[in-house]
């Protein structure tokens, strides 16, 4: 039976109380520490979704590696996608500290039962998307992950510290692509604006449903797995991003976007949550293509993995016989 559908064991209330006291005192929870089963599962869910997102996230950007318009851009795009593979690997290993097998988690991705960030189900249609993904998508991820670096589970927090450093670099790189296009030819500026028009709203959806509709938020906040709500993080991202858009001289596709002097926030229009629900349900523009690409890589690589295992077995046999 899959881990997530097994009934929850009842945790000892004394242990739960001691655990929550540690959380309240700001202590970090380590792999060998006792933790409520719900806590362990929430973290497994969040970390595996994060790892899956890194791996699926390689595809939309990988789509432009062969077409990058200069050698410098080609090199930095390959390096970026490679970093994502590294992050995925790193977080998958992190989940193993929670007693799960990364190959089981990966199978959940392939069979479509695990989730990953909805943003990667949108297609990359132009070179400008490489800039905009770096700027907006990595920008949104950083807002999320900077807070996650203070999460109560030690291994995840430490992974986030390291990953955030690289994500910051990716974001700068993406913004620099955007700036180059913004200062470029009319066709380049048009390409940039179109990419922003396509990615703005999906980027806002990356923070997840509004707090009133987020089933996990209260518990995650109590255990300091999360430190801010989805809506707080989304607002923070918008406040950071609007001045950057102004700097680029592009518009954001929201007629209701305006500065609120009272709250010091940028107010924004209504997010189309039906689109978000559709993408989450598997009906986004590229859901099928993304999973198909991962499955194809997995299936076509089976003989390679089998060979590596067979060779390793022969070697250890030979060593034992010697």
């Amino acid at each position: 039976m899959p881990e997530t559908t097994r009934p929850l064991p009842t945790d000892d209330p004394t242990q739960v109380a001691a655990f929550e006291a540690r959380i309240a005192a700001g202590e970090s929870i380590e792999p060998k520490d006792w933790m409520p089963e719900r806590y362990r599962r929430q973290l497994t869910r969040m970390m595996s979704q994060h790892a899956h997102s890194e791996i699926v996230g390689m595809l939309p950007e990988g789509n432009w590696i062969t077409r990058a318009p200069s050698l410098r851009r080609k090199l930095s795009l390959i390096a970026k996608v490679q970093d994502e593979a590294g992050h995925g690997l790193y977080i998958y290993c992190g989940t193993e500290t929670l007693g799960v097998d990364r190959f089981d988690l990966y199978n959940q991705l392939l069979d479509g039962t695990a989730k990953y960030s909805s943003i990667f189900n949108y297609p990359t249609l132009a070179w400008a998307d490489m800039g905009v993904i770096g700027w907006l998508v990595d920008g949104a991820a950083i807002v999320n992950q900077t807070i996650l670096a203070k999460t109560s589970y030690g291994p995840y927090a430490r992974a986030m510290v390291r990953i955030c450093k690289e994500e910051n670099f990716h974001k700068r790189q993406g913004y620099e692509i955007c700036m180059t296009l913004a200062k470029g030819t009319p066709a380049q500026r048009e390409m940039l604006q179109d990419a922003v028009n396509r990615f703005w709203w999906p980027s806002l959806m990356m923070f997840g449903p509004s707090d009133t509709h987020s089933p996990n938020t209260a518990e995650l906040l109590k255990w300091r797995v999360k430190r801010k709500t989805n809506d707080e993080l989304r607002q923070r991202f918008i406040n950071l991003t609007v001045p950057q858009a102004q700097e680029l001289g592009i518009t954001l596709p929201d007629p209701d976007l305006r500065y609120n002097a009272e709250t010091k926030n940028w107010d924004f229009g209504t997010i189309d949550w039906s689109e978000f629900q559709e993408v989450i349900a598997g009906n986004g523009p590229c859901n099928r293509e993304r999973l198909e690409a991962r499955r194809a890589a997995h299936d076509e690589g089976r003989w390679v993995r089998d060979a590596a295992a067979a060779h390793a077995a022969k070697r250890s046999q030979a060593t034992a016989a010697a």
Partner: peptide, 10 residues
């Protein structure tokens, strides 16, 4: 570079 994202193992 055509392999990026499509390798047999991560």
């Amino acid at each position: 570079s055509e392999w990026c994202g499509h390798g047999p193992i991560l």
